[in-house]
Amino acid sequence: MTEEHPILETRDLTIRFGGHVAVDHVSCAFKRGTLTAIVGPNGAGKTTYFNLISGQLKASAGQVILNGADITRASVPERTDRGIGRAFQLTNLFPSLSVRENVRLVAQAKAGLGFDMFSVAESHIELIERAEHVLAEVNLIDSGEQIVSALPHGDQRKLEVALMIALGPQVLMFDEPTAGMSVDEVPIILDLIKSLKQDIDRTILLVEHKMDVIRSLADRIIVLHNGALVADGDPAEVIALPVVQEAYLGKVPEAA
């Protein structure tokens, strides 16, 4: 069997803000059908690394390669079209619209109907059905009519993930999906990520702080520290490394 090409790869990916190097020559390849957890202390550059991959930030140097194509200079919508999906750390929804409309808009973008001015939006039943289907997956089906700004925080987090899933992307990027969720809601998202992992065509990148979550989900862990990639490997090995111990365990007693 030949070695499979990685679906996503970053080569020497770097971004500088003035003199500060937020992401520093990060080279990493992600294989199809794997779940990679990205860990590191606060300010290590995890979210910035995500922003460089999904296009919200443009790299100062280096490359982002998706399916063999260089997308380093591509716009955010173009990367989305090419199969990158992103769920944001800070909830980022359409607040004055209903829950169902939020997801329907994603289905509509996916169907390429955004510029259709002559049909009535509600007449595209298939988009509404798609939205309902995704809402059922994240257990939000009963809140479909609610306006998002009035939604409880935990439900907003679920909707955040729903927007990404509705895109049906090849690469799913979760940025602390369970942050701020109540204890009984966390399993819903974790089960969802597990079921997405079953699909061998999907590649998942996960920024997460909860070590038990990472242990139960990740095939591989990479560690960022001050913007640089400092460790990469099997979860058990990486968690045992001193740098991870320091970042996640060593500092906890000091702080307390």
Partner: peptide, 10 residues
């Protein structure tokens, strides 16, 4: 409502 997210969904 949210131009940033509108870009991110395509």
């Amino acid at each position: 409502d949210n131009a940033f997210r509108a870009e991110a969904i395509g």
